[in-house]
Simulated assay, not measured.
Amino acid sequence: MTDQLTKVFAALADPTRRDMVARLSVADATVNELAAPYEVSVQAVSKHLKVLEDSGLVTRTREAQRRPVHLEDNVFDLMTKWIERYRQQAEERYHRLDAVLDTMDTDSSAAPATDSPENSRTGA
């Protein structure tokens, strides 16, 4: 699992590949269709797709003469589970911090007022 996550996050580290994934989330596309908006060769797009394929984010199928690239949604489930685990841990830490801060606020508001150096200087 971690090895695949490493590959997925590495694949998504490149902005061109992230853009391709975003475009594939709308509809399958061929290599030529994916290459159209970029000022790079079809071979360069194919290299990007190879990285996405190796990570499991996309697959290529064959429909007659067409070879569409398909986004694999199950990989996003894997990423979401991993991210959610750490989000929950962070949220639990924030809740504990909130509890500590609430205790500190309660303690400071219940403490009797004492003469502070400022009050003694001003004669209050």
Rank of each mutant, 00 (worst) to 15 (best):
M1I: 07
M1P: 15
L5P: 01
K7L: 15
A11T: 11
L12P: 14
A13T: 09
R17Q: 13
M20N: 04
V21R: 03
A22C: 11
R23V: 04
L24K: 04
S25W: 09
V26L: 06
D28V: 05
T30W: 06
T30F: 15
L34T: 07
L34G: 02
E39D: 12
V40Y: 02
V40N: 05
V40H: 11
Q43R: 09
A44K: 05
S46V: 08
S46D: 11
K47D: 14
H48E: 13
H48D: 14
H48M: 10
L49H: 01
V51W: 02
L52D: 10
L52G: 03
E53C: 02
E53D: 02
D54F: 04
S55H: 06
L57S: 13
L57Q: 10
R60Q: 11
R60M: 11
R60P: 07
T61M: 15
T61C: 08
R66T: 10
R67H: 14
P68V: 14
E72K: 12
E72T: 05
D73T: 10
D77H: 07
R85Y: 04
R85V: 12
R85M: 12
R85I: 05
Y86A: 01
Q89C: 04
R93T: 04
Y94C: 11
Y94A: 15
H95L: 12
L97Q: 00
D98A: 09
D98E: 00
L101P: 01
M104W: 09
D107W: 06
A110K: 14
A111P: 00
A111N: 05
A113P: 00
P117V: 00
P117M: 01
S120K: 12
S120F: 10
